[in-house]
Structures are given as C-alpha cells and as structure tokens.
Design a binder for these strands. Structure first.
Length: 470
DNA sequence: ATGTGC
C-alpha cells in the first residue's frame, strides 16, 4: 500500500480499485512501521457505501476486526451510507473515566498499600464472573440498557454532577433493548459493574506534568494530585450484540446490493431495518458500558473515602468504540453523518454545544490510557479537527498477546513495577504479562503525533501509582 | 475485547 506524506504527521492513500475516497493516516514514519496490515484495512473502509471525505486512522493504529483499531469513518445516510459493527468493535462503548481527588501523592503515600488492598476485593475483574451490582431481574437490566449511568445514579450509585461530566449526559438516546438478543442479555446479567480483562484496568495515578495550566484548571487537575482512571467496556453483552448483528447483516448484504472488500466489513444502510436494529442494540450496549464505569467509580469512591479520607470528582467519561449520528461541516455544508470511531476518542472543540457549561470554554477532555509502567494523558479537543472531531485512544499494541505472554514473566513484571513504586493487584499472571509496557508503542510518541497532526492538544500527563488489573 | 476456538 503506497502512502504519500502530505504533512509532518499526515499520510495519504490515493483511491484505487473499489475505494470511493482516499485514506488518511495521522502518524509518524516510526509509528507506521508496525501497522502494515492495518493500513490495508484503512483502504478497505474507504470502499464502504456512502463514506464521506476520507477513511481516517489515528496514530495508535493497529490491526483489528474489519476496521483497523484507531479507525474513523463517517457515512452519509442520505447517500446510502452504511453502519458497520466492525467499525465500532466487539467491545461496544469501551472507554475511559477519569476522577480527580482532593489529595496529593504525598498524602496518599503512607496508606497506598492499604488503599490498594481495599480496592482489590471490591473491583470485580478477570474473565467471566463477578459484578458490583446483583440485579433483581430483567427489568433492572432493561433500565441499565436504556438509562446507562443515569439509571445507576438514580439508584444511589453516584450524584447528579457525575452525569454532567459524562458523554451524552450518561446515556445514549435511542437505545433499543428489544434488539439485544437473549444470549447477550444472559451474558450481561451477571457482569454489571466489572472491569473484564485484557487492557482494562483501574489505576491510581498522580498528575506528573501540566502542559496547559488554564485548561487543566477547568478540568480540575493540578500537579501532584491523585486521580483514578477506569478503562472498561460492555463485557460479554457488547460482544454478543456485535456478533449477532454482524451475522444478521452478512445475510442481508447481497439483497441490499452491497459489496465490501472484506467479509469482516459486514454492514447495512443506516436507514434500513438491520441498520436501525444494530444502532438501537449498540446504544443499549453503550449504556451498559457507561453504567459499568459508573458503578466501578462508586466502588472506588467508597474505598478512597474510608482509607484515605479523600473525595473523587468526575473529570469526564468518554467512549472510544462507538458509532454516532452527528452533524459535521463537509465542504462548508452541514450534514448529519454516522461517525464510526473504533479505538478513537471523540474530541469536541471549545465552544461545542454538547459540552457541559463549565467545560464549554476549555473543550472536551480526551482521556488516553497508556500502559502500566509508563503514563496516561489528558488531552483536549481542537477547533477545526481534521477527522470529524476525533483523536487517538491509547498506545496501540505492537506485540500480539501471545508474543507478549511468551516473552514476559508476569511475576517478574510485577516485581519490576513495585520497584518503581507502582503497587500492582493483578487478576492473573498471564494477563499481566500480556499487558507488559513493551507490548505497546510508546504512548508519548502517539501523543506527539496526535498533537502534531492537529487532532488534539496536551493538557496533563498522569503517572501510575497503583494498578488494579483486569 | 470475548464463557480467548467452526
């Protein structure tokens, strides 16, 4: 695949074959080196019906199911535009929540081990079982699917201010639980309020550097402050929703006359029975993911209050796996588009009407989880963002899970991290090894490219203090 | 990511 550099952090794939628009990859040469198969996927996405302007990829691009992880693509429903579950990913509404405490790292230090021991049993994680919330029945699950974080808050898990700081005020509209299948409901019933596994975590962090004092202040962040970051998604429920709707779309594509270069790009017109069914089920799974983060946040708050006498205020909660109907200017014209972000974070610019009043001047917090040994970042959306108000979402893998598990010993990794003063509470040694920092790209290089490409701006760097690993 | 595999 030929990539032509057109700006310092911007590469272009000219449309060839079935491509309807060009591909645009925001990255440095170094970051591109490990993403060859994923670049082919960017070109494949450019062939989707109704795709607008370009098929984009963020600097943390790596290979994924159908779409690359780090992919952004918008389609126009009025021009036969499609929605594709592969453009959202299996972990629907996987995302990040950041809370800021009212204590500094030096205040926490004497009780850190106690705090970690307090979090350990109350943050359910690992494959399969365990959840903060035991549901009374299906009606409660339906409430979560339509109400998201709002439902959790209404039932005593959090406060009204939390909702102001959640994307979509805590719940995606137009969720349709009727299109969430029986199997998905069964899988979801016992996992409400759980981290899961893989790269999911709850981290105690310290603000290590401030890049933009004014915006950091608006976000409630200052140097030395203790924060909590939660990264998790919609567990087995979201996974099953994706599986079910990919199958349903595969069966109908021929009748819609849709051809795609890769079977994994199964899709349906946004304005079709299958498209609407998926979007309704996806929104329901997204709300499950948001309630999940709300419940875990509340569990962490109780431990922080009890052991450190500290309060945790929500900075923001945002998804990086979602498709949304949004208005964007295309060639000077406002159009309603279906924006797929898969491993890409929405990054609204200052002044955007969807921001809460106290963040409107600053812009949307963009939360980027790094890896255990390195750092995470808080960014902010930029005016005139080049990719439908999107930015990167993490470091991006360079080693497969298998590779990492072969090359890293989990116990030794924990010892190394503890030597660096990072407390670790893993759920499995293999899982920990798979998430070793060396399995990922350098998150700082990803951030530098994201900023250099004009996708976002740096606000603060967060350093790990304690890791509760899924 | 995922009761890690048709």
């Amino acid at each position: 695949m030929e990539l032509v550099q057109e700006a310092p952090y911007r590469f272009r794939i000219e449309p060839t074959g079935a491509m309807r628009v060009p591909g645009v990859v925001f990255a440095s040469r170094e970051l591109l080196g490990s993403a060859e198969n994923a670049i082919d996927q960017v070109a494949n996405v450019a062939a989707l019906p109704g795709v607008v302007r370009a098929s984009y990829a963020m600097p943390d691009i790596h290979w994924g199911y159908g779409f690359a992880i780090g992919g952004v693509a918008a389609t126009d429903p009025q021009q036969g535009g499609v929605v594709s579950p592969g453009g959202v990913g299996f972990d629907i509404s996987c995302g990040v929540r950041l809370m800021a405490s009212d204590i500094d790292a030096s205040d926490l230090e004497p009780v850190l081990e106690k705090l970690m021991d307090g979090l350990d049993p109350v943050i359910p994680r690992g494959m399969g079982k365990g959840a903060v919330w035991r549901l009374s029945g299906r009606r409660e699950l339906t409430g979560i699917l339509t109400g998201g974080s709002r439902y959790a808050v209404e039932h005593g898990h959090g406060n009204e201010r939390d909702l102001l700081r959640c994307e979509d005020a805590g719940a995606v509209a137009d969720a349709d639980p009727d299109h969430v299948g029986e199997r998905a409901l069964e899988r979801g019933a016992g996992q409400v309020g759980s981290l899961g596994s893989g790269n999911h975590f709850l981290e105690v962090q310290r603000v290590g550097e401030i890049y933009d004092r004014q915006v950091a202040e608006a976000f409630g962040l200052r140097n030395g402050q203790i924060c909590v970051m939660i990264h998790c998604g919609s567990r087995g429920l979201g996974h099953q929703v994706c599986t079910d709707h990919v199958r349903a779309m595969e069966r109908r594509m021929e009748r819609y006359g849709i051809q795609v270069p890769d079977r994994q790009l199964a899709c349906a017109p946004v304005d079709s029975a299958e498209g609407r069914a998926y979007l309704g089920a996806m929104a329901a799974a997204a709300n499950y993911g948001r309630a999940n983060r709300q419940l875990l946040a509340q569990a962490a708050r109780q431990v922080f209050q009890r052991i450190a006498g500290a309060r945790l205020d929500l900075v923001y909660d945002v998804s990086h796996n979602l498709a949304k109907l949004e208005e964007h200017a295309v060639d000077g014209e406002r159009r309603r588009l279906c924006v797929h972000r898969k491993g890409a974070t929405r990054a609204l610019p200052p002044g955007h009407p969807d921001l809460p009043p106290d963040l409107r001047d600053a812009g949307q917090p963009v939360l980027i989880p790094g890896t255990m040994g390195t750092s995470s970042y808080v960014l902010v959306g930029m005016p005139g963002g080049p990719a439908f108000a999107s930015a990167c979402h993490g470091a991006g893998r360079v080693q497969s899970r298998h590779q990492a598990a072969r090359g890293v010993d989990g116990r030794r990794l924990r010892a190394t991290l503890e030597e660096q003063g990072i407390a670790v509470r893993p759920s499995s040694w293999r899982g920990l090894a798979e998430e070793a920092p060396e399995a990922y790209k350098d998150v700082s290089a990803v951030i530098e490219a994201s900023e250099g490409a004009g996708l976002c701006r740096k606000v603060a760097r967060l350093l790990p203090v304690g890791v509760v690993k899924g």
